[in-house]
Design a protein around this nucleic acid. Structure first.
Lengths: 209, 209
DNA sequence: TGAGGAATCCGACGGAAGTCGGATTCCCGC
DNA sequence: GCGGGAATCCGACTTCCGTCGGATTCCTCA
């Protein structure tokens, strides 16, 4: 296959060892090439402009700006840009956000490496790639599970181990109000106390450590 | 360099995409070769017997049996076996356990990939490889932070979001006793409530999701 | 426009969590 | 042996958490 027909891939992952390895996998294929790579969302935006890759292979958990934010930012200027998400986690929030932002494939690092190659080829051909586990997580999302902005704010403070009183001071509201928000959060996450709320929020990717 | 002098490496990581990529990095070097690879601790023990690698490159978070358990099991029969730990996390418990089990190097996936190569060569030459962050985490460990077996048991139930009453039933003891254990755990982790305890336990790798 | 829903806010009540003091058992070293 | 330390166990008291009922504001949509 001649050089010009190769699929140009930009690889974004905050772990250099993992990233270089993935680039090696891609470069071992005759029909694709990792033309650039980086560790942060900010660099990704810049490198996209420079290289105009056919596909951007994006990890979601990045320092500071997230991979989803990077996808949104790039698609603002390049609506036709193609993204394949490659991540470790199966938290439904990550998946939902990524698909919402316009990702065309969602590959989990626990899958065989041929799946990654397959996803890249399918997306390049205009298709999609969503493994069953991902589709199931998407389907399991009830509109009820959405949290309001304020509730997410409270949840993130919950996940830092703050007490109701601390959260109240932090937000400039009454402790009673905080309790009310917490109650709503417990209902939405379908759990019965704050500790369970933090655990399931971490599992679902609503907040991070 | 002739083939016989190559460093034989066994690669163990539960994420195939990451693992194949790392093997590719190793195989790109003239003085080393990934002679085998697998996703679980059980397979690792078997493959070690088959290939007798010079170095086993081991991830710590594996399904069922952990990487640390695999290191211990292999070293029981092969005390001279060399291990390089390659993991995502910097939780001090993981680090401590791995070094205790006999790992000669601790490489974090966030480091440049030359660091991995460097670690493999140094360990093969009889040396060690412990990055500053790892040494610091080891030094920060106070004997006070050790939990008893019972306390770890309670902590793991805490991290599943169980209430004191549920934990009591689960362990066949009184709720008052559970509260006592929880109090000790809070003191050892230097936090003030169960939610903070779960968060810091997750951060430090004392328990996993 | 105005009825309804959602988000935000607050106070009072019952139950759970965490602290304190105390007791028993086991193990290690002098 | 036996004193001391650590782990395990328990009950009573105080504080915090979560629920309930209720109120206000804002937005939407019929």
């Amino acid at each position: 296959m001649e050089n010009g027909a190769k699929i140009k891939v930009l690889v974004v992952d905050d772990h250099p060892i993992v990233r270089v390895g993935i680039a090696a996998i891609i470069n071992a294929r005759p029909d694709m090439a990792a033309v650039a790579q980086c560790s942060t969302a900010e660099e990704a935006i810049e490198l996209f402009e420079q290289h105009q890759p056919d596909i951007t292979l994006m990890d979601l958990r990045l320092p500071k700006m997230s991979g989803v934010d990077a996808i949104r930012a790039i698609r603002l200027r390049h609506p036709k840009a193609c993204f394949v998400v490659l991540t470790t986690y199966e938290g439904d929030e990550d998946i939902y956000q990524a698909i919402e932002a316009g990702a065309r494939a969602y590959v989990i690092k626990g899958m065989p490496h041929e799946a990654l190659i397959d996803a890249l080829r399918r997306v390049h051909a205009g298709g999609r790639f969503l493994p069953p586990a991902v589709s199931r997580a998407l389907a399991a999302r009830t509109p009820d599970s959405d949290l309001s902005a304020r509730e997410r704010e409270v949840l993130s403070l919950l996940a830092r181990g703050e007490t109701n009183k601390e959260i109240a001071q932090h937000l400039g509201i009454t402790e009673a109000t905080v309790k009310c928000h917490v109650s709503v959060i417990l209902m939405r996450l379908q759990v019965s106390d704050r500790t369970q709320a933090v655990v399931t929020a971490l599992q679902r990717g609503l907040v991070h450590l």
